[in-house]
Amino acid sequence: MRIAIDVTMDYQLAGAETVLLTLDAAETDGQKVLQSALDIADATLHRIPGEGGTGARVCASVTSDRLKLRYSAVVDVTRSEIMLDALPQAGLGALPPEALSCLRPSRFCQSDLFVPFMGRRFGHLKGGAKVIAIRDWVKAEIAYVSGSSTPTTTAMETFVSREGVCRDATHLFCALARAAGIPARYTSVYGADVHPPDFHAVAQVWLDSAWHFIDPTGMVAADGVVIIGCGRDAADVAFMETAGNAYVVSQNVRVTRQ
């Protein structure tokens, strides 16, 4: 599937500063970037590797107090949807380093707090069947409500409130999967079926010696997303980071199938 991406952002900054951006489509398994362009007014750019070596971060040294950018890309997505139900879960000693780091608690995914709940609710399941059950539970229990959470909302807070956005559903899914001994990482993506249109968050789980997509909101499938970056939680792949305060003037994310 060929996917076109068009992003415009206009932010008021506290002053001239370096802005860290994670919004480039990654060159990674299952997708090929055919075209890509990033234009930022009054800025010099350089790129550094993304978290865990997936994708890249852009360091934009902005010389004014306004960040105005446009990013566009065309990406061929070649990965296909895979039935996860029968895939086995790896033992602790068989996990590679990249998966081990996604088995531990993190700032927004306090997986250690969910171990008793996971034993009671999903202890009878294993591997891919457990992953599917966790996904279905999160989708059924967590209402998608725009504006219901903040950038500091944790998985436990979402578990209690039973509402949030894609970021919150993904944090909760990752926390539950990790509590069950299944590595899960937070993955920022572009998706053509995301409503309202925006940057989107999904999870990836380590089963049968590979990473596999899970969208706890049910909006997108593996063959319809473009990976931007991956990490333990949203803090690792924030689309924009600044030293001072930044205020949105306008932002538009448009993702379409070609």
Rank of each mutant, 00 (worst) to 15 (best):
I3T: 05
T8I: 12
T8R: 15
D10Q: 08
A14G: 15
E17C: 12
T18I: 12
L20T: 04
L23N: 02
D24F: 01
A26Q: 00
E27M: 00
D29K: 05
G30F: 06
K32T: 13
V33Q: 11
V33L: 13
A37S: 15
L38D: 05
D42S: 11
T44H: 10
G53S: 07
A56C: 12
A56Y: 09
R57D: 07
V62M: 02
R66S: 13
L69S: 14
L69G: 08
V74K: 03
V74A: 14
V75E: 07
D76A: 15
T78V: 07
M83R: 14
D85I: 02
P88F: 05
P88N: 03
Q89S: 10
Q89Y: 06
P96D: 09
A99E: 08
A99G: 06
L100R: 14
S106N: 02
R107M: 09
R107Q: 05
F117T: 03
M118F: 06
M118L: 14
R120V: 03
R120G: 07
G127Y: 13
K130Q: 15
A133E: 04
I134T: 01
W137Y: 14
I142A: 02
I142W: 10
Y144L: 03
G147H: 09
G147P: 01
S148F: 06
S148G: 04
T152P: 04
T153E: 12
A155S: 11
M156V: 15
T170Y: 03
H171N: 00
F173A: 01
A179F: 08
T187E: 04
S188A: 06
S188I: 00
Y190M: 02
A192K: 08
A192M: 11
D193N: 13
D198G: 10
D198T: 00
H200M: 13
H200R: 06
V205Q: 05
D208S: 04
D208E: 08
A210H: 07
W211D: 08
W211K: 03
P216M: 08
T217E: 02
T217S: 11
G218T: 10
G218R: 10
M219L: 10
D223G: 11
V226I: 14
A234R: 00
A238D: 15
A238H: 11
F239M: 13
F239L: 12
M240K: 04
E241H: 05
T242W: 08
T242Q: 04
T242S: 11
G244N: 07
Y247M: 11
V248L: 12
Q251L: 09
N252K: 15
V253I: 12
T256M: 15
T256R: 15
